[in-house]
Amino acid sequence: MSGISLDIAVETFPFAAPFRISGYVFDHQDVVVVTLTDGEYIGRGEASGVYYLGEDPARMMAQIEAQRALIGSGVSREMLRGAMPAGGARNAVDAAMWDLEAKRTGQAVWQLAGLAPPKPLATTFTLSADDPAAMARRATDFADVPHIKIKLTGELPLDVKRVRAIRAARPDAWLGVDGNQGFARRDLIPLIKVLVEERVSLLEQPSRRGREADLDGLKCSMPIAADESVLTLDEIPSLVGRFGVVNIKLDKCGGLTEALLMAKAARLHGLGVMVGNMVGSSLAMAPAFVLGQLCDIVDLDGPIFLARDRTPSVVYSRGQATCPPDLWGWPA
């Protein structure tokens, strides 16, 4: 690609209700939208950034502006990986480059990536941390959703009540829990005991990044997924022996280009693969939907928390997500 024009914008998406995880409460999501055009075709990408790494729109826009000349010269996606750090800024540009390439070549992104035609994906629907009874009611609202992920806060007695209440409300559901780095080593054994009793199938990121040694010697019959503990491709080997699943998020790793490499590396290291999201509109979910075709666990429910989404948008029905071709990544 050459002679590419770059536009960068910030958009705000209010949440339908406050969203609480360990240490944070969110009521909106600011996203950076990158638009690339060659004068005939247009490619778009969206990124939220990684909040716990201090990424915000101003920082992401500055990183993209610093590479404006390089991007405009028609740099390849592979060269972009070397020129920009992993994170939301590179993800937005990478996604726009994939989209533009699909428009220009007449091949969908899944074809460019050498993948099979995409299928609808069974995705988890996430319950924001709240009063146990309120979370149980929300789980009941998701009556036709087979897979539910529960946000915990590291408050062990309260978290136990949350898990038990949700399991009672949804005895049929696949349940996973996300600790978002909220648990100390001393709380992991009693937490896991309850999770086993309540037939929870996944424990995601219980300990803080940098405290992965807290998992050493821990007996856990369910897979433990690394989220904050794995950002990029080069960190995957360090997970072996402590984690069983890698949660790949495009905002963390810097885009679909690196994410596909991470999925391959995770398989080579005997790890399961999961795709997640930092919350955003359907435009942010579309590249992750391509990665999701390779994953064991899919968590792409970000748009359900928004008061409004884009049009066209991801379609959610009975716990499955489908990306329409006119959203992103297909020929014009």
Rank of each mutant, 00 (worst) to 15 (best):
V200R: 00
A226P: 12
E197I: 11
I42G: 01
D178V: 01
Q181C: 05
S229L: 05
A226C: 09
R104G: 02
S5H: 06
N180K: 02
L294H: 00
P146Q: 08
E198F: 06
Y316C: 12
L239V: 02
P324I: 11
G54Q: 02
Y24A: 12
R185W: 10
G39M: 13
A173F: 11
T322L: 11
L115F: 02
I71F: 04
A58C: 10
C295S: 14
V298K: 03
D30G: 04
G254C: 08
A66L: 10
A225E: 13
G272C: 03
H269K: 06
L300G: 05
A96Q: 09
C323Q: 06
A58E: 15
G43F: 00
R199T: 10
L271M: 04
P57K: 07
I192L: 06
S48F: 00
R59W: 09
L300S: 03
S221N: 13
R90C: 12
V279F: 10
N180P: 01
S281V: 09
W98L: 13
P118T: 10
N247S: 14
G3Q: 07
R59V: 14
A266I: 11
R77S: 03
P324E: 07
T35Y: 00
R170T: 14
P324D: 10
G88M: 05
R138H: 13
S317T: 11
R209T: 04
L175P: 04
E101K: 14
S5C: 03
R20P: 01
T232M: 10
E228T: 01
S281N: 10
D301F: 00
I189R: 15
L268Y: 09
Q320P: 01
I64H: 01
G292A: 03
R242G: 04
L256D: 09
K103E: 13
A133F: 02
Q205R: 10
L231Y: 08
D299Q: 12
C220F: 09
T232Q: 12
D27K: 02
K193H: 12
E228M: 00
F305V: 05
G272M: 14
E11L: 14
E78M: 12
S201L: 11
Q67H: 15
D301N: 02
A89L: 05
M262D: 12
T322G: 00
F289T: 05
L202G: 04
V25Y: 00
S2Y: 00
L268Q: 15
I8E: 11
L306P: 14
A102H: 00
A139L: 07
G270A: 02
A266K: 01
D227I: 09
R242L: 02
I189K: 15
I71D: 07
K264G: 11
R199A: 15
P206M: 09
A321W: 00
V290T: 14
I71Y: 03
I150V: 14
L203W: 02
V145M: 05
Q111A: 14
A92F: 03
D172G: 13
E212G: 00
R242P: 01
P287A: 08
A143C: 11
L191F: 05
A169E: 12
P325A: 15
V314Y: 09
K119N: 13
F15D: 12
V34D: 06
P18R: 07
R185Y: 08
V145D: 03
T322V: 01
R170L: 15
G329N: 03
T123W: 04
G74M: 06
A17E: 15
A265S: 15
G272H: 11
A69L: 13
D326Q: 14
A86H: 12
D159G: 07
I21A: 04
A86C: 12
I166R: 07
G82W: 08
T123I: 09
M222P: 08
